[in-house]
């Protein structure tokens, strides 16, 4: 574990160093250039692009989490029970839509820029969170929910004190899937002029500069893996803290 932690910290440190001062790493990417192409993308600062990329992902994910968990709570209460079968199949069907298609279809409605990317990330991010929240809220051990009613908790107390805390690790797994998809889709968002790290890759592809492609790809890839890894660790901690040994897929 400690070796793993050291590797993660080193990778994170390298990533941050590269984002802040990309020029100091020019020698790494020099060999990939041809005919005196620049080794480092400078049209836009890498730091700004990264921050903007992460902000878009964060906003979309937070919004998606609020809405998805809210909806999942609604359809698992007696009032919304009629919507449960439908919402399950929507979550299932919806995930067969490629994120790129969602992104491309948002453009005509919202124009170019950050807005369509945000909306696409939000819409697509809803599904895994919603699906996991449903799973989390509907697969609680029956003896536990039974006991919660038996000791005299009100519906609201049951939801807040028992059901949601126990479902949190599973919901978090949904958020993790959603974030990973969002980091990827935000990259493609630069084809519709959102300001994200995809810009570096696209610039490389357009100007046939492998150095750009590689640095954009590396930053996005390493960032995605680190975020995924951190969220998985958080899930394991929460799982242990809530005394559960459920397998997360």
């Amino acid at each position: 574990m400690s070796i793993g932690l050291i590797i993660r910290l080193v990778v994170l440190a390298l990533l941050v160093a590269f984002i802040v001062t990309p020029e100091s790493f020019a020698f790494v990417f020099q060999p990939l250039t041809r005919n005196g192409q620049p080794a480092i993308y400078t049209q836009n600062s890498l730091l700004n692009l990264t921050l903007s990329h992460l902000t878009i992902v964060a906003i979309a994910t937070i919004a998606a989490t609020l809405v998805a968990v809210g909806l999942a709570i609604l359809v698992t209460r007696p009032f919304g029970a009629e919507f449960l079968p439908l919402s399950r199949s929507i979550a299932n069907i919806g995930q067969t839509f490629p994120p790129v298609a969602v992104l491309a279809l948002a453009v005509p409605v919202l124009g170019f820029g950050t807005a369509p990317t945000l909306v696409a990330l939000f819409l697509y991010g809803l599904l895994p969170i919603f699906e996991n929240a449903l799973t989390g809220l509907t697969t609680l051990p029956p003896t536990v929910t039974e006991a919660a009613r038996g000791v005299g908790m009100t519906d609201r107390q049951r939801l807040l004190d028992v059901e949601l805390p126990l479902a949190t690790p599973v919901i978090l797994a949904g958020i993790r899937l959603s974030v990973v998809i969002s980091v990827a889709t935000a990259t493609i968002g630069s084809t519709v002029a959102a300001s994200t790290l995809g810009e570096v890759i696209i610039a490389g592809l357009l100007s046939n500069n492998l150095a750009f492609v590689a640095q954009g790809g590396l930053v996005v890839g390493v960032m995605a893996v680190l975020i995924y890894d951190a969220l998985s660790a958080l899930e394991r901690i929460l799982m242990a803290r809530t005394g559960q040994r459920r397998e997360i897929s």
Binding site: T143, G152, V162, P165
Partner: peptide, 19 residues
């Protein structure tokens, strides 16, 4: 729920809150 708070209730498989 107020009634239930006055009555103890124990079930098979204990139903303890795991968290």
């Amino acid at each position: 729920f107020e009634l239930r708070r006055r009555i103890g209730y124990a079930i098979q498989g204990h139903g303890l809150f795991p968290h």
